[in-house]
Amino acid sequence: MSSKIILEKQQFSITIDRLCYELIERHDNFSNSALIGLQPRGTYFSQRVFKRLVEITSNKNILYGELDIAFYRDDFRRTQDDQIIPSKLDINFTVENKRIVLIDDVLFTGRTIRAALDALTDFGRPAKVELMVLIDRRFGRDLPIQPDYTGIAVDTRANDKVKVEWKENSKQDLALIVTN
């Protein structure tokens, strides 16, 4: 088993800064926009982005929520992995007619995002939905889904694993590809 580092240390904050400026470019003062992180793992990333965005813009009114997709997964009763357990869901605003930015850490098959789109539209009809990911695993898609904001794009083989660690849940900020 070997591993290769994709992102580490201050590369995280540089990447997050750049993504924040890309958001500002397209969303102006965020008056009709909202950021939504995907539970369980995407929320470490989305919280960082949200925190940094508030720092940069000094705008305290940016809407932020967290979405759980457990009830919408297409592998319910089909996966041999651990039992699917829901995580906390926290959206205290209406998504109707808002410009939503979905935020997740790794984009691979696109199935999580498919489920998230279903989950999101059960809260209302957004004006627009965009996707931000920290790591885009190209060439692995099962569904026609692409990110609008990408931290870094990597080429991996199907059996590789991409692991992201955060200071909040681990010792350090680190993203790596693990090859068996």
Binding site: F71, Y72, F76, L89, D118, D122, F123, G124
Partner: peptide
């Protein structure tokens, strides 16, 4: 949360 929003249904 699900049963208190306008769409009270999930596809699970």
């Amino acid at each position: 949360t699900v049963i208190n929003r306008p769409i009270k249904k999930v596809p699970s």
